[in-house]
């Protein structure tokens, strides 16, 4: 379980940002989470509250947008969404591919703050 340490990094980042803006109150943290990031959404959500305890972020909410896995198909010469992360093949032509374009994100994209 590394979701707690990830949650703590997220809180730390948001806190820094809030402090930089003069100690504003953060209500929502928006996160993009790739399905190949190695981080489990549910575990991250439950760790988040714990990570927020007695910080500026206490009471804030984590909103996760999951990013599907997109690969590059060498045959179609086009980006394609894989059907499942257990099947790295082009959904159109069935060509195997390991070239991942998207899906590893673990990124704080925005904060909703109250001044």
């Amino acid at each position: 379980m590394h979701e707690l340490s990830i949650a703590m990094s997220i809180v730390e980042m948001a806190q820094e940002e809030a402090e930089r803006r003069g100690g504003v109150q953060v209500q929502i943290v928006h996160l993009r989470l790739g399905r190949l990031s190695g981080v489990v959404k549910e575990a991250l959500l439950s760790s988040y509250e714990m990570a927020c305890a007695s910080t500026l972020l206490e009471g804030s909410q984590l909103m996760i947008e999951e990013v599907p896995v997109e690969v590059f198909c060498p045959r179609c010469e086009a980006p394609r969404l894989v059907r499942s992360i257990q099947w790295f093949r082009c959904p159109e032509c069935d060509t195997p591919t390991s070239t991942v374009i998207r899906g590893k994100e673990l990124e704080v994209v925005a904060l909703e703050i109250k001044e």
Binding site: S9, R21, I28, L106, E112, K114
Partner: peptide, 18 residues
């Protein structure tokens, strides 16, 4: 004082340090 929450862009990789 504005009560409306405001959206600010951040765009930071959580594992950037690593």
């Amino acid at each position: 004082m504005n009560a409306e929450p405001r959206l600010v862009e951040v765009r930071k990789n959580v594992l950037k340090q690593n």
